[in-house]
Simulated assay, not measured.
Amino acid sequence: MTRLSVNINKIATLRNSRGGNNPDLIQVAKDCERFGAQGITVHPRPDERHIRYADVVNLKKIVTTEFNIEGNCQEQKFIDLVLANKPAQVTLVPDILGQITSNHGWDTITNQAYLKYTIAIFKAAGIRVSIFVDPVPEMVAAAATTGTDRIELYTEGYATNFPKGKEAAIAPYVEAAKVAQQYGLGINAGHDLDLHNLKYFVENVPGLDEVSIGHALISDALYFGLENTIQMYLRACAV
């Protein structure tokens, strides 16, 4: 079964929009786990417009499943935050300052030396490393020589093209996953996966360890309730 990690950034966005502590991010994380989520994901950014650095510290104290911190490792503050809190997994994303959301994977060829150096820092601290990549075989193959444990396939392209033709939309991800398997890499995926396209993705991408889902899941929870929504996503992952 592919594991479900719930990204709670949007809960923090809602909290921050009015100040105070409503909704309570820590309680939501606890509830996500209680409702069956197998991990909690956060993606802190320098402007702290959603997840704050203090949230990471507080979440580390209470998360009992798998804690995954995503972010731009080109920011020293991010590196320091991860090393101080030692999550189960760190996911390295090539964001730029002010970026609204992640929109591309690493060029693992051009950035090979940098990624080797940075990944080694986290692995020396006992933290599993995943790096964000596009479904391009050459980029997956080059990821394997960086020292990373896993890749996270950036799935916006799949989600965008899914309504136009699911077979064509999934094809590059299947190929990328096969390359990852050849090199012994674990496979995660995330970005714009939802209740419409998730099951087909899980059914067809070989060796898929984990999906990280936030925006769509939290949006669905407005209609279906958080507990029910998490169960719906878990069923889509249970292939």
Rank of each mutant, 00 (worst) to 15 (best):
I218W: 03
H215V: 11
K166D: 13
H215K: 02
L115S: 02
Y117D: 13
T145R: 10
V202M: 14
D134A: 01
R150T: 12
E175T: 13
I121K: 12
G126N: 09
I218H: 03
G190V: 00
K178N: 15
L222A: 09
D134I: 00
R150L: 15
I119S: 05
L208N: 05
E152G: 05
T110Q: 14
A168F: 03
A216D: 08
I127S: 10
E156V: 15
V205M: 06
A113W: 11
L193M: 12
A168S: 10
G190H: 03
T146H: 03
T148Q: 07
D220Y: 03
P135N: 03
A144W: 00
V133G: 03
V136A: 10
A168T: 10
Y223W: 14
M139K: 11
P137L: 04
L185R: 02
I170G: 02
P206R: 12
K178R: 15
I131N: 00
K123R: 12
A176Y: 00
S212T: 11
Y158E: 05
Y154I: 01
Q181W: 13
G186D: 11
P163A: 11
T148M: 12
N111H: 06
L222R: 09
F132L: 15
S130T: 07
D134T: 02
A144M: 07
T145D: 11
A141S: 14
D134C: 00
E152R: 06
Y154P: 02
A113C: 06
P163S: 07
A180S: 01
P137S: 09
Y114L: 15
V140D: 04
L185Y: 13
D192C: 11
A113M: 05
E152V: 01
G214V: 08
Q112C: 11
I151W: 00
I121E: 13
A159Q: 07
E156Y: 11
A142M: 03
D149W: 02
K123A: 07
I218P: 07
A216K: 09
Y200E: 02
S219L: 15
Q112G: 11
S219V: 15
M139E: 14
N197C: 14
V202C: 14
Q181Y: 12
I119W: 00
S212Q: 12
S219Q: 15
S212K: 05
K164G: 05
